[in-house]
Design a protein around this nucleic acid. Structure first.
Length: 164
DNA sequence: GCCAACGTTGGC
DNA sequence: GCCAACGTTGGC
């Protein structure tokens, strides 16, 4: 008797997500209920499409601090929900309000991100010192995307670096 | 605060 | 669809 076919599990994927620590640092995320924060404020279609089409519960996240004195990877997190409408797009008091987003067809999405642990700060200069990481999107010139896919090899290497 | 790089907008 | 103007990002 052969075992019934089992749908192959989707490969876990990995992402780098930028957050301004003034708005939500890794410490803020760890201090939130269930260490989970709704990833509000993404207003770029490519990043939105990653959330909508590619990111799944269980995916790994490099929590990156941007636009701050020490930009770099600050923690590890995971995706804990599918994408849904970002309510801040309809909040006229929010800096993320988008009056052109139709309420019956929300333009902007978010998903929930659960902080797993803080790491030592792995800064940009350090990341660039490792030739095996030079392909990372966050290290490319002119990179601005707030969510970028991360290769499994890069993920593993950064986990190693984080405990050095 | 500077400025390079990039995304978006909107006239044509 | 082109592309100039403008706004934003984000490291430095």
């Amino acid at each position: 008797m052969t075992a019934p076919p089992i749908a192959p599990a989707r490969l876990q994927r990995y992402w780098l997500m930028k957050s301004e620590p003034d708005e939500c640092s890794i410490d803020d995320a760890l201090a939130a209920p269930h260490a989970t924060v709704p990833w509000t404020g993404v207003r770029n279609y490519q990043a939105r499409n990653f959330m909508r089409d590619e990111m799944q519960v269980g995916d790994g996240v490099l929590f990156y601090h941007s636009s701050c004195s020490e930009p770099g990877i600050a923690g590890i997190a995971r995706i804990v929900s599918r994408a849904r409408a970002d309510p801040t797009q309809f909040d006229t008091a929010s800096p993320y309000c988008d009056p052109r987003s139709p309420s019956d067809k929300p333009r902007w999405l978010l998903l929930d991100v659960q902080a797993v642990r803080k790491t030592r700060l792995i800064g940009l200069a350090e990341l660039r010192k490792h030739p095996e990481l030079t392909g990372m999107q966050v290290l490319q010139k002119g990179n601005r995307l707030s969510i970028t896919p991360v290769d499994a090899a890069h993920w593993e290497r950064i986990l190693q670096l984080s405990v050095d």
